[in-house]
Design a protein around this nucleic acid. Structure first.
Lengths: 233, 233, 233, 233
DNA sequence: CATGAATGAGCTTTCATTCAT
DNA sequence: GATGAATGAAAGCTCATTCAT
């Protein structure tokens, strides 16, 4: 994830009062801001805390970001750099069953997004979208639409190849997305501070979701009987 | 809605016009606070706005709630009042297939929680849990654990009756919960302010999730082949 | 002067912490702001000082004025309330020589403007006009133009009646205005802090200016010889 | 202009291109500072702007001036360098009528001070005198007292030679000074940003002031009758 | 010497909280 | 009880000043 580029070994050197590290600063600040914004929310995070976590003074932050709001926008943008081009290419080249493709999607998502700080953006957007409509629009174009499109293509491939049952794709994508996005949010909220969450192993969560989804998408020999309200006595 | 509990008997007192609904104040404040906290988050909501929305002055709010934090806690507590006793009773009395039971769960959840303001609590907890650990614990005991237990019983009933395949219940409950909780959060965040979200019809979303989950939990005649990494050429 | 309306006996009562004097506040704040802005300039005056001088807290100031800049604008506007209507009426009704009229102008100006806090506005505008173009335009319309017009009428009356010699009125008005405005500015700057200024008695200053101006405007029997450069002695 | 004194011999040093004019730096900084201080006032001028206008970095400014205040003081001191010795010499040598002498004073003042950046000092002192008492005292000794003395001598010469009427010199000097100093201030404040000011031609302004002052100082054949309040015409 | 990244005191502004009415 | 004027701690942001390079 982009943020990682910057953290590297910032801690390893002794900082003098006026050490110049101009090109490293923005990344360090963005990483610090991401962490705190995700943890405490935008409004409850003080710029001084961000600066402190990045190892600089309050004033320095404002050299690189004109305002707290600009910092927020930069955090979101920084962590959304188009990964979709790469993923779409992977989709084109994938050889294998659609079930495998879907499993790969989920695993890769966890590996590259879910388990990294980038997953914090999901929680951040959910928490702050309504306070930053401009960012919400940006996020919709940069993440939601490409994401839906990609998952839609994966599912459609399965349908086209007779591997998945036909579904309304508009809602179908959420079969895959909802469990993953919930995981991302859970991880950064209750999962980070309550017992129930502490015990959840993401890989196991994903494994069960994957098999259930695949089973759910499969074409059954005998469909389950349509239910009538409180049918059986 | 839980909040209503508070106002409910407010009508019964007959005073002069100007003093009417005096004991309804806390309920009105809680409703206003829920709405604004959900929309803007705790920190970004001003108590004056809450008071205004409730039709009282800022000072009045502090007569009923010692601080903004106490107001927040009251909002959460008030809106997760134990409905589980009732629901557990429904579970005991339910006559019908486990598939129907699960469908009923999802439908009832939407009707009583998802579509009401109470769903905002889910978003609130996700956004603020880490700032209110005490509340997170409370929420875990009052909502998460009973919720998991209830869903767990529903699924276990299906397994026990040979209707659902056996799964690790610790993760199994999320098969049902994740799509619903994601819907609740989405509705109050991006869904409330971006195009993609505007077009989502919750009932249709839930219907597809329900059938997919049931299909996913079903015992298949022929299980899908275990996948090897990039099996087919 | 408008400002005076407010100072009255503010000091005479004992202030409790939360005493309510809502309608008196703006005036007290404007008076305090005028004093400090004139003394130290806009930028060098801190809002907290203004509040303190007005006997309120920092926060209170912002209840009445949205920003420091709005406070500044209000100070200027407050002290410019149209006195010109009244003065123009006086002009119409004046019975007497134009010399007397001019003397009366200067005396009245000192009495109602020059000697009061309102004269500080002159210094304030001179110091800050270029930082507040919007206010400069406002001041031009509300003060400069009516002022020039009024003085112009007074002088023109004298010319028309054969009392004053004919002059280009565009520059003529400054014969009267310059000495008065200089006095106002001097009084609030060097005059307030240096020995030379301390000894200047405004009434005497004005008396001499008046007689010299009148003499200067008079129609001489024998005009002074046109000078050639460095005429022989 | 005084500032030039500083640069003057800067051309004589022959270095490499990049090092050229090294010793001109302070002069360039002072010129830049004068311009900005006059335009925006001391407090509202940022040292970075001054440095930029002088073509150097912020840090460089502090090599030459210990603080912003010191820079301000240097600007004032630099621009009021004693021209009075020269002017007093001119006074001694002047051959001609006192009227001519006075006309020459006004013309020369405009030429050497009024029309140059040095006139900005007048505005600067008026605006900031009370924030810099030390400078005010300095200014009083270096400018005000010599200036008053010089003008006083000119007027006294006229009186002594029977050319001007006798006046109290303490106030008499302002007959000459007030219109000129007002012009200087006007030019750098409202005159620089409002329509009324834009149309004022200084030479014409001075010409009319000169003739009116001379007329006003002249000994009249028939003095104007002492006015009684509202005397009938 | 010159630079400009970094600092942090200081200022404007906000807003939860108080309390006289 | 209800009000809303008043408070002041706290937060965002600025900018004179420093100093390693």
């Amino acid at each position: 994830m982009p943020v990682k580029n910057f953290d590297s070994d910032a801690q390893s050197c002794v900082h003098a009062k006026h050490e110049r590290r101009k090109d490293a600063r923005p990344g360090e600040l963005l990483a610090a801001a991401l962490e705190l914004f995700v943890e405490k929310g935008f409004a409850a995070t003080r710029v001084e805390e961000v600066a402190k976590l990045a190892g600089v003074s309050k004033g320095t932050l404002f050299i690189y970001f004109a305002s707290k709001e600009e910092l927020f926008k930069a955090v979101v943008r920084e962590n959304i750099s188009g990964r979709f081009e790469e993923w779409n290419a992977e989709f084109e080249n994938f050889q294998g069953s659609s079930a495998d493709m879907l499993r790969y999607c989920l695993t890769a998502w966890w590996e590259h997004i879910g388990s990294t700080k980038a997953s914090g953006i999901t929680k951040l957007m959910m928490s702050e979208a309504r306070n930053f409509p401009e960012l919400a629009t940006f996020y919709e174009h940069e993440v939601i639409q490409p994401g839906h499109a990609l998952i839609g293509r994966v599912l459609q491939r399965g349908v086209d190849r007779g591997e998945f049952r036909a579904i309304d794709m508009k809602y179908g994508v959420y079969i895959v997305l909802a469990p993953m996005l919930f995981l991302a949010m859970w991880k950064h909220s209750l999962g980070a501070c309550c017992d129930a969450g502490a015990q959840l192993v993401p890989e196991d969560y994903i494994a069960l979701q994957a098999e259930t989804i695949l089973n759910g998408l499969s074409i059954r020999q005998t469909p389950p009987p349509l239910s009538q309200k409180n049918t059986a006595s």
